[in-house]
Nucleic acid binder design. Structure first.
Lengths: 237, 237
DNA sequence: ATTAAAATTTAGTCCAGTCTAAAAATTAGT
DNA sequence: ACTAATTTTTAGACTGGACTAAATTTTAAT
């Protein structure tokens, strides 16, 4: 029922990539988040992060490399080029403005904003993003306290440090909660740990053990690892 | 370099359709808009509306029919089933709530809301739609004056009639502008014709000729065809 | 220095949704 | 009523982005 026929594939390589496809944007954003200083990001880590098979990540890296968005060293990993980073920062800006909008205007909780923003960031026009930003009063941070890059990809000044880096007894203002899951965010909220809250470090167990934190609603032990993701600055300024 | 090999396609028909894909939703919405009373919608008209090849529309109709969303009579056309219509009305609700939100909260113009809503309606969660609707005060109409169906797909009462169906001299309130292009909407805006505006029919040329309309900012001739798309009701109630 | 394990890439499929070209059915024109 | 024009459907191919299985390279362990 099917004449087999001879298949001659010319396979001319160009394959022009849609710069604005959802998955391209997701790969770039993931690379941006995974890339510490200039160590290349491993294919497996990237694939894991995006919940795709490693082979899929490899395929996409080849396309992104061809488009000049990443530098791909086979078997070593890959890093963003300037142009790729620029593109990624644009997505970070969109994401954070949307999160701020969802919280301020639509009364979303801190634990709800990310999921919705993850989808919307790909759907919203540049115009709409800028309108949101205006309506919000040109905010410089999102509801987690993460900075919103400007159009050139520059971030506002950041003097905050991880909670676990302070010494006890100083009053501290929580500035930012980095990349935590909705469940963790709900937990922290319940403990009174949110951007803007003023707390006091009561004690630090040795060997990176838990720290004891005095918050507006009680005294709570916090795992070292979690405390690394909570940025604060001395209260008063 | 390529062993041809024997290809035996079993081709079991099920092919389960993603009910929530963007294109499925677009097809259903288009069918809903094109379907006058119960005349089936022609494949070509549908394809034209969605800017795809007729063959693509046929292919999609087969899938939608299999999923029970439309009834497809080959070579005759196709019409929505109750379940398909329900689905389409859900999209209409989303679209109109988004339009209202864009106008009220983000200060979009009447001529700008549709394009943005067209994309957003596929990206926004049910939760976000309902939040928007709450923040807006549970509106029953969008900025064009088109009614917003409720969760059961029911529309609010509609007593308005086309402008051209009234007789001269009665004061009328514009209630709705149906399905016009951005350019037409800008033109009407400039003439002072917008939902809520109070106008007076000055004269109607015979044989469906232009009508003369007195608006807040002058006296203007309007083509019959355009006047059919402008719904109004007697002013005062 | 080998070998085993882990990471990465290649090769080949699949799927949704589109397309074009050709075949079939319907509608219209005389 | 029959041919011509139009509409619709079939057949077959392509693209982006995913997958699995197998091959290859790198890293780690003896």
């Amino acid at each position: 029922m099917q004449s087999p026929g001879l298949l001659i594939t010319i396979s001319a390589m160009p394959s022009h990539l849609d710069l604005n496809s959802r998955s391209v944007q997701d790969y770039l954003k993931a690379l941006y988040k995974l890339q510490q200083q200039d160590a290349p990001v491993s294919t497996n880590v990237l694939a894991e992060r995006l919940q795709v098979a490693p082979a899929s990540a490899t395929a996409m890296m080849k396309k992104l490399a061809e488009a000049g968005l990443v530098e791909h060293i086979p078997y070593q990993g890959c890093r963003l080029t300037d142009s790729g980073r620029q593109q990624a920062l644009k997505m970070v800006r969109r994401h954070r403005i949307i999160e701020q909008f969802l919280q301020q205007v639509l009364h979303y909780g801190l634990d709800e904003v990310d999921e919705e923003a993850e989808v919307l960031e790909h759907a919203v026009s540049d115009k709409l993003i800028e309108r949101m930003w205006q309506v919000l009063g040109q905010p410089s941070h999102d509801p987690h306290g993460s900075p919103i890059p400007d159009h050139q990809g520059r971030f506002p000044e950041q003097s905050a440090r991880p909670l676990c880096s302070f010494s006890p007894d100083q009053p501290l203002r929580i500035v930012r909660l980095k990349e935590r899951s909705p469940a963790q965010l709900r937990y922290l909220h319940q403990l009174g740990i949110e951007p803007g809250a003023v707390v006091r470090l009561v004690d630090k167990a040795p060997f990176n053990g838990p720290i004891i934190l005095h918050t507006p609603n009680g005294q709570h032990p916090i795992a070292w690892e979690l405390a690394e993701a909570i940025l604060a600055e001395p209260d008063t300024p």
